[in-house]
Every structure is written in structure tokens, then in C-alpha cells.
């Protein structure tokens, strides 16, 4: 029996050498996130007549390792707003707890839940901006979808620097390069969103996720999709990309050391 509780649960000195107590030190310089660790890739979103659709895949990568394959990156807030997270997953989970506490506080208050997607986006952008100004960023790029104060469909972006912008269709990360051109072609910006149906929007997002799966090495064919309308939020978190065609792959030749 070891009579020194301080050594309980530690690696045995006779096997692993003397224990290095510096691991337990709480002093030393304060450290901040200077690069993300476990990350999620693109978020894509599009407005349609009467609502907004938002989608992400279910992958959380650790560098190039596909580490967690059932990560839910769409988080519902209240009954009329959804946040899609790209970037660091631990920061996403922190923000999710933060939003959860706000939602509970709002629901306990006398006026009930008043925060719409627009308010939520403003709040998140200010959290991001405050943290970047403290040189302690939350390493995320998010899309917020839902309705504004006038009940019109709302879709807006906020990132780790506090930069914000809004457009009829948006995508973060790799999706900004691959998905936005697809969405801009399907739904030209001069076309009013009233002329886009829910089905068209959902199909477009699925198409975007498929192209991202083909070309984004940090993506997955399992995805989540949320459709926010006045009737409520239709969230599906365990979807599988259908109708993949890898026929193009065999025609890709000439990279690296490949000779045939």
C-alpha cells in the first residue's frame, strides 16, 4: 500500500523515471489560442421564400486526421434561429454553452425568448470582436440563420476577427471558394429570394456539400441540414450524401509521381 496520496494515480517512478512536477504548475505565462486544434470545415447557407436553409458535414478533424465523424455543427437557438459553426470545435462548444445559458435566462425572464437570429448574430459578432481585441480569439467562422425583427429571412456571417457580412447565400472556409460560385449560379443575386423554393434551396445545399466532399480533403459525406421557416426548425443531423459519382476521378491524371 502506497501511503502517500500525492503519488496516487501517477506513473510509477521505478518504471517511468521521476515524475516531472512542472506539468502541475499553475504559474508561468498566460497562454491563448494561437491556432485551432480540432476543427470543422465549411458551413453553407441559402435564403429561400419564407425561410433559410443551413448545412454542415458531421466531421471534426484533428489536423489531417478525420477524428470525430458524428459531430453536430448546427446548433439550434430558441425556436427560430440556427448557428452553423466552422473552425475550432472546443470554441464551438464554449459558444454553445454560452448561447444555452442565454436562452435559459431569456426563457426564465418575464418577456420570454425575444432574441431573433439578427440579435443572436449581433451578439456573437460582439463576442468574437471582444475576444480578438483581447488577443484571445474564439477560432470560429459562423453562419447565423433565422429571421430578423421584421420577420424576414436572415442569413449572416461572423468570424474570429469580428468581421460580419450578409448575403442571400453564404459559405465559410473551403465553401467560400467552392460552394458560393455554385449558389451564385443557381440563384443570381438579382433574383428575388421569393422566387426560390424550399426544395430548390435544400437541393442546392446538398449539391454544394457533394462538391465539397469531392474536393475538400477535410470533409465528410455525413451531414446535418436545418431548414428554418415560420413553422419552426426542421433539423436533420444524420444524413448521408446521395448520388455520388466518382467517375470523374479516373480521368484525373498527371499529379505528383503518377506516370500512367
Amino acid at each position: 500500500m502506497d501511503h502517500f496520496p500525492g503519488t496516487w494515480g501517477r506513473p510509477r517512478n521505478d518504471v517511468y523515471g521521476a515524475y516531472d512536477p512542472s506539468y502541475l504548475q499553475s504559474t508561468g505565462p498566460k497562454t491563448h489560442t494561437t491556432s485551432p486544434a480540432v476543427t470543422g470545415t465549411s458551413v453553407v447557407g441559402v435564403k429561400f421564400n419564407g425561410g433559410v436553409a443551413l448545412a454542415t458535414d458531421n466531421l471534426a478533424s484533428y489536423g489531417s486526421l478525420a477524428r470525430f465523424t458524428d459531430t453536430k455543427r448546427l446548433r439550434v437557438f430558441g425556436d427560430q434561429a440556427v448557428v452553423g459553426f466552422g473552425g475550432d470545435v472546443s470554441d464551438m462548444q464554449y459558444l454553445d454553452r454560452l448561447l444555452e445559458s442565454i436562452d435559459i435566462r431569456e426563457n426564465y425572464s418575464s418577456h420570454g425568448n425575444m432574441l431573433n437570429a439578427k440579435n443572436l448574430h449581433t451578439y456573437l459578432a460582439k463576442v468574437f470582436y471582444k475576444r480578438r481585441s483581447e488577443f484571445n480569439p474564439l477560432w470560429n467562422h459562423v453562419l447565423v440563420a433565422g429571421f430578423d425583427g421584421e420577420g424576414k429571412p436572415f442569413l449572416s456571417s461572423a468570424d474570429l476577427l469580428g468581421t460580419t457580412f450578409s448575403a442571400p447565400h453564404l459559405a465559410t472556409g473551403f465553401g467560400a471558394h467552392l460552394a458560393v460560385p455554385i449558389l451564385r449560379r443557381l440563384f443570381p443575386e438579382e433574383k428575388p429570394i421569393e422566387e426560390i423554393s424550399r426544395e430548390e434551396a435544400v437541393d442546392a445545399l446538398k449539391q454544394c456539400l457533394k462538391v465539397l466532399f469531392y474536393r475538400d480533403a477535410r470533409s465528410l459525406d455525413k451531414y446535418s441540414i436545418a431548414v428554418i421557416t415560420k413553422e419552426g426548425i426542421d433539423l436533420k443531423e444524420d444524413e448521408q450524401l446521395e448520388g455520388q459519382s466518382w467517375a470523374f476521378a479516373e480521368r484525373i491524371k498527371g499529379y505528383g509521381a503518377q506516370t500512367v
Binding site: S157, T163, F165, S166, A167, A176
Partner: peptide, 13 residues
């Protein structure tokens, strides 16, 4: 126009 690098974030900011 709002840009980051060669990307156009949005046409209406």
C-alpha cells in the same frame, strides 16, 4: 463590396 483576399464576401455591405 466586401472582400477578403480574392473572395467577395458580399456585394451589399
Amino acid at each position: 463590396r466586401s472582400t477578403s483576399g480574392y473572395n467577395i464576401n458580399s456585394r451589399m455591405v
